[in-house]
Amino acid sequence: MFLAENDLQAIWLTLRLAGVVTFILLLLGTPLAWWLATASSRLKGPVGAVVALPLVLPPSVLGFYMLLAMGPRGPVGMITKAAGIGLLPFTFWGLVVASVFYSLPFMVQPLQNAFEAIGKRPVQVAASLGASKLDAFFTVALPLARPGLLTASILTFAHTVGEFGVVLMIGGNIPGVTRVASVQIYDHVEALEYNEAYHMAAVLLIFSFLALLALYVWQPNIRNVIQTER
C-alpha cells in the first residue's frame, strides 16, 4: 500500500467527519432551505445572508470566531462546560460543529434552489387533496426535490473533505482526533515528505474529481448550482 498508516487514519477521520457533517446538515439544512424558499418573512434576507457568509469569509476568520465562541469564556463553551461535555476546541465534535457552519451554504443553497424550482403549487395541490403541511412536505416537496438533495449532499460531503483553514483553527493537529487529510498533507510538506504529500494529494484530487464527475454525469444542472454559489 502506498499510503502510511497515519495517512489512512487521516483519511478515515476525514470521511467520518464529512459523513457526520452531511448527515447533520441534511437534518438542519432541509427545513432551513424550505423556510428560505417559501417564507415571506422579513428575516428571510438576513438569514439568507448569514447562511451564505462562509462562501465569502476567509476560513481563518470563521475559525477564529468559532474558537472564541467554543472557548472557556465563549457562550458555546460555557454551555458545553455546564452540560458536562467539556470544551469543544481540539476535539472531533468541535470539528463537526465548525464544519456544520462552514459547509452550511453548500447544503442549503442547492436545496433552496430545488424547492424554489418546484414552486408552491404542488404543495397547494396536496393540501387540496387533504394533506397537512407536514404531510405535503414529506410526500410531495421532499421527493420532488430529490435531485437537489443529492446535489447538496455530495457538495457538502466533498466540501467538508476539502476543508483546511477552519479545521486547523478549531481542531489543531491531533493524530486520530483532529488531523484530517488536508492537514496531513500540510504536515508532510512541512516535513519535506514530498512523496507522501504527493500520494495524499492524489487521493484527494481523485476523490474530488470523482465526486464532481458523478454530479456532472447524473445531474448536468449542477453546473448552474456551482456557478450560483461561487
Partner: peptide, 17 residues
Amino acid sequence: PPSRRRIAMVFQQHELF
C-alpha cells in the same frame, strides 16, 4: 386549512406529482 375543507381543485396545468 385547505386540507380540512374537502374542496378539491383541478388547475390549468395538470399539476400531477
